[in-house]
Design a protein around this nucleic acid. Structure first.
Length: 287
DNA sequence: GAGCTATGTAGAC
DNA sequence: TCTACCTAGCTCT
């Protein structure tokens, strides 16, 4: 389930697996049948990511555009290919491997103009080679919208999602409720630079870890009471699935850690629905 | 095995 | 603002 780092990792994996191979494509589910027919028999040249979008190029003017949405998957495995099961939108078969795409929000073919339009509507991506953070700052510095919402807006910054939003604001001690225009330029620079570090690390690891090495031990100690009786009584409530999830998430400071004490100030991590998504933050140290 | 939830977006209204 | 997308990991029974 992807933020930008997942897509960049996927693009690298698809390139490595299929580059310069003539591929067979099909849409067993039928929802991408015409597109799969157009791609069938072409040479896949490379894949790249921009924000949370994936673009796959072939020896053709058309490019495959995929957005995985909340629960799409695109997984490559070694041949032999198994019989398709369930809602399989697209299968790509190469010389030694195949890849299955399931449940995407977008799976379509784009021409050059449409690809250009896609790039235009996505903000600078911290994982691209030469992103232009000034574009993001131009939007944020003029906006009355809360910075917690701006960081999730893909036209402001491409690729950051709910976890990176929560974690980078915590790491920089900035309240998600502050208006974008109230940030100092240096604060934006710190957010951007931290995103670059965290997201690159996410690509490398294949998962999001935002806790600094120097805090790892303290976080583990903080969570060492996983089965302690008072764990159920942080705010007087019963144990819940959310709380159990939170206890497992030791690689992050605030995301899905509702009710757990903040590593730095001890105040309970807060959560609320915010612009239709769950927002997590520390009311003690994010101002 | 059933039920719930989630790292997201597009499109309908 | 609501709904579709229809996966997959987790918990509960």
């Amino acid at each position: 389930m992807p933020e930008g780092h997942t897509l960049h990792r996927l693009a690298g994996s698809l390139t490595k697996t299929f580059a310069d191979q003539r591929v067979q494509t099909s849409s067993p589910q039928g929802r991408f049948e015409s597109g799969a027919q157009l791609l069938d028999g072409l040479v896949l040249t490379h894949a790249e990511a921009v924000g949370k979008h994936l673009l796959v190029s072939f020896d053709s003017p058309l490019r495959l555009h995929v957005h995985l949405g909340l629960y799409g998957t695109f997984v490559a495995r070694r041949l032999p290919e198994p019989t398709p099961v369930g809602a399989l939108r697209l299968r790509i078969v190469g010389d030694e491997s195949y890849a299955d795409l399931r449940g995407p929000t977008a799976c379509e073919l784009l021409d050059d103009d449409q690809v250009a339009a896609l790039f235009n509507r996505i903000g600078p991506d911290p994982l691209r080679k030469k992103p232009d953070p000034e574009r993001a700052w131009a939007r944020i510095s003029k906006s009355k919208a809360p910075v917690g919402a701006l960081l999730m807006d893909q036209s402001v910054i491409g690729g950051a999602g709910n976890i990176y939003r929560a974690e980078v604001l915590y790491r920089q001690g900035i309240s998600p409720f502050r208006e974008g225009r109230s940030l100092a330029p240096e604060q934006f620079d710190d957010i951007w630079n931290d995103l670059v570090i965290l997201m690159k690390d996410g690509v490398k690891r294949g998962r999001i870890v935002t806790v600094d090495k120097s805090d790892m031990r303290a976080m583990a100690d903080l969570d060492s009471d996983r089965r302690a009786p008072d764990d159920r009584d942080l705010d007087g409530g019963e144990d819940t699935p959310a709380r159990r999830r939170a206890r497992r998430a030791t690689g992050v400071y605030v995301y899905q850690r509702t009710g757990r004490p903040c590593l730095r100030c001890g105040v309970a991590i807060a959560a609320q629905e915010f612009y239709g998504r769950n927002l997590f933050w520390c009311p003690g140290c994010q101002n």
